[in-house]
Structure formats: structure tokens, C-alpha cells
């Protein structure tokens, strides 16, 4: 029983069609606790499609995604409760403040203490402007609020699509440090990137997706 619940994310022979495009052609991968899988490849290679397939937003024509040894399709809600997906754009409401955004985004998943929220905001360097409407924030600042949400969700599996977009050098190092800390705590990361992540080599694995 213990073996079954080992924290491993596994993709087996994943095929995905988008209309007439065969986007993913038998993709296979394994990520275990403490590992980061870095997805690279040219535009249109299917990096985003693969991430969306993993999180259940796209349905593969063949193959399957297994989490802890079982097909995620068997129980998507339980899988979703253990994963976080960050897409190209930070999922934030422009009219709400950073703090309100984090509340309505994460609190539907889990209750968190005010101190935890403050700690997370401090960690991503968002403490000073977390009470401003997101509309007034720069793209990089929005991205930091999204990273705070990622930390606050407190889930083992991170699925990140271009997590360093719009971030300055300091912000890119922050992303690298967050991922390193997450891996050190036994977490898993799958990230689609254009530029290599600033993470330590230990636990880093690469998957190159082919162009079309």
C-alpha cells in the first residue's frame, strides 16, 4: 500500500490532437518527489498542451497520466486538491487587491491563517503592495502575487507554464529559490520554460518536446 502512494507523477504514451494537429506524440515522463521536470522545445512543441493534459484540462486521445500510481482520470478532484497550475497569465481579478485575490483563490481549497498569508507575501516580496488593486500593479508584481498563491495552496505538485515571464533577474532567482525549497521539502515541479530555470542541478530533469 505504501508503494502505491509514492509521490510520483507519470505520463505514459500520451497522444493529444488539437483539431488536425497531432500535438503530443507518445510523450512519456516520470517525476518523483524532490524532482523538477523542465519542459523545453520550440513554440508549438506542445509544452502548454502537455501541462494542460496533466492537469486534466485536455483529454488525451491515448495514454494516461498517473499520480501516486493511479490514473488521474479516476478521481480528478482528489488529484486537483494536490496540485497547482499556473498558466501564462496570473489568474487574478483586476478589481480586487492582491490580498483579496489570494483569499478568494486559495481559501476555497484550504483555510489558512493570517500569519501564513503574511509570511507568503513577504517571501515573494509582495508585502508592500498587497493591498493595492491588482489593476495598478506591474506585470512582474502580478506574477509575484500569483507565486504567493502557489505557495499558499501548499500542494505537493506544481505545474508551471513559463513561471519567470515578466520577472526581473531578482524575480527569476526568486522562482528558482522557491522551486529549490519546494523540491527540498519533497515536492514535485513540472515547468514549461523558454529559458532554463535558475534552479540547482540536483533533482533537475529535462524533457525536450519536438516541434511540428
Amino acid at each position: 500500500m505504501r508503494g502505491m502512494s509514492e509521490t510520483t507523477l507519470k505520463g505514459e504514451n500520451v497522444h493529444l490532437w488539437r483539431g488536425e494537429r497531432h500535438v503530443l506524440r507518445g510523450v512519456a515522463f516520470t517525476v518523483s518527489g524532490g524532482e523538477c521536470l523542465q519542459l523545453t522545445g520550440p513554440n508549438g512543441a506542445g509544452k502548454t498542451s502537455l501541462l494542460r493534459t496533466v492537469c486534466g484540462m485536455a483529454y488525451p486521445e491515448a495514454g494516461r497520466i498517473c499520480w501516486r500510481g493511479t490514473d488521474v482520470r479516476e478521481d480528478l478532484p482528489s488529484f486537483h486538491a494536490e496540485m497547482a497550475y499556473l498558466g501564462h497569465e496570473p489568474p487574478l481579478k483586476m478589481e480586487l487587491t492582491g490580498r483579496e485575490n489570494l483569499h478568494y483563490w486559495v481559501a476555497v481549497r484550504r483555510r489558512f491563517a493570517a500569519a501564513e498569508l503574511e509570511a507568503v507575501l513577504g517571501r515573494v516580496g509582495a508585502g508592500r503592495w498587497a493591498d493595492r488593486p491588482v489593476r495598478t500593479l506591474s506585470a512582474g508584481q502580478k506574477r509575484r502575487v500569483a507565486l504567493a498563491g502557489l505557495l499558499l495552496m501548499a500542494v505537493p505538485l506544481w505545474l508551471l507554464d513559463e513561471p519567470t515571464t515578466n520577472l526581473d533577474v531578482e524575480g527569476q532567482h526568486l522562482v528558482g529559490a522557491l522551486i529549490d525549497e519546494h523540491l527540498a521539502a519533497g515536492g514535485l515541479v513540472m515547468a514549461a520554460v523558454h529559458h532554463p530555470l535558475a534552479v540547482s542541478e540536483r533533482g533537475l530533469r529535462r524533457l525536450e518536446l519536438g516541434g511540428v
Binding site: 481559501a107 483555510r111 505537493p156
Partner: peptide
């Protein structure tokens, strides 16, 4: 922030 990764229960902790 990172929960215990081997917890057996399916429902997330502290879920409202």
C-alpha cells in the same frame, strides 16, 4: 507550507 506528502487521506487538510 508544504504538506506532508505521504498523508493517506484523500481530502485536503483544512478544506472548508
Amino acid at each position: 507550507v508544504v504538506p506532508s506528502l505521504t498523508r493517506p487521506e484523500r481530502a485536503p487538510r483544512n478544506a472548508p
